[in-house]
Amino acid sequence: MDLNTVIEIRDARHPAPWRPGDAWLAGGTYLFSEPQPHLRRLVDLGRTGWTPVALGPDGSLEIAATCTIAQLSRFAKDLAAEAAPLFEQCCRAFLASFKIWNVATVGGNLCTALPAGPMISLTAALDGECLLISQDGVRRRTRVADFVTGAGRQVLAEGELLRSITLPARALAGRTAFRQASLYGQGRSGVLVIGTWEPLDGSWALTVTASTVRPIRLRFSGPPAAEALREALDSAVADDEWFDDLHGLPEWRRHMTFRFAEEIRRGLTAR
């Protein structure tokens, strides 16, 4: 879609004062999908040259905000980590066209903050941490599970940039289990639940996305009993936090979330 109110595109490598009507441009798959009448200038991140994905010396994984879904998928195929299959499962949860697959970015998926965003699911489940940079250069970090605060809402301040997401080595070494449901064969995720079990300290976690307006991450010191998991999940999600749109009623999303949570608890613990 043409953004006919945009009168300028600026290269992000050449800083300039942020002003009303500015927006960061990465893949642009959401930005160009619907009218944006409030925009006047786009700040293009496409030539920043950030390394899409890199392993750190401590075994952690840094994913640049500009990393595309296709780049992440290719990298994960050669990733020697127990959690590697989860990357492809979440990438495929896009059910996207070839064009979207090669243009959409990890950072864009997080910043759009849609409940069904599978990069939110992936990075929240692996206890990811976002690096945010303000217009005056101040850096701060926040967990992915706290970055998204509601449907279409996140913690970015005006002009603040999501630079990267870091996944810790301990999470990459953990076992994972993935469950997803949609009302349609090729439809948007209505429920996406991920379980993780970290070998270093035996901690166990459940991450709920798509069925809720924000990521819900429950962490336990070890595999929980069925009743303990159910009570924790019931307490963590308020009645008005079950998402409601044409891709699923809140009652259905809640039912499937609890069902998948128990399936994951049994399957992941038995491995």
Rank of each mutant, 00 (worst) to 15 (best):
V6R: 03
I7T: 15
I9D: 13
R10T: 14
A12D: 12
P15R: 03
P20A: 08
G27E: 13
G27R: 03
G28C: 12
G28T: 12
F32T: 13
Q36R: 14
P37Y: 06
L45V: 07
G46R: 14
W50L: 13
T51G: 02
A54K: 02
L55C: 11
P57N: 12
D58A: 08
D58H: 04
L61K: 01
E62I: 06
A64R: 04
A64F: 06
A64C: 09
T66R: 02
T68I: 09
F75T: 09
L79Y: 07
E82N: 11
P85Y: 04
L86D: 13
R92C: 11
K99T: 14
I100V: 15
I100W: 02
G108L: 10
C111F: 04
M119H: 02
I120M: 12
L132T: 07
L132E: 13
D136Q: 09
R139H: 09
A145T: 15
A145G: 09
D146R: 05
A157F: 00
G159P: 07
L162Q: 08
S164Y: 03
S164T: 12
T166N: 08
L167W: 06
L167M: 09
R170F: 10
G174S: 11
Q180I: 12
S182H: 07
G187R: 03
R188V: 14
L192N: 13
W197D: 06
E198V: 07
P199D: 13
D201K: 05
A205G: 13
A210R: 01
R214Q: 07
P215L: 11
I216D: 00
I216Q: 01
R217S: 13
G222P: 03
P223K: 03
A225F: 05
A226W: 03
L229Q: 11
R230P: 02
A232S: 15
L233K: 02
D245H: 02
P250D: 07
F260H: 03
L268H: 00
L268Q: 01
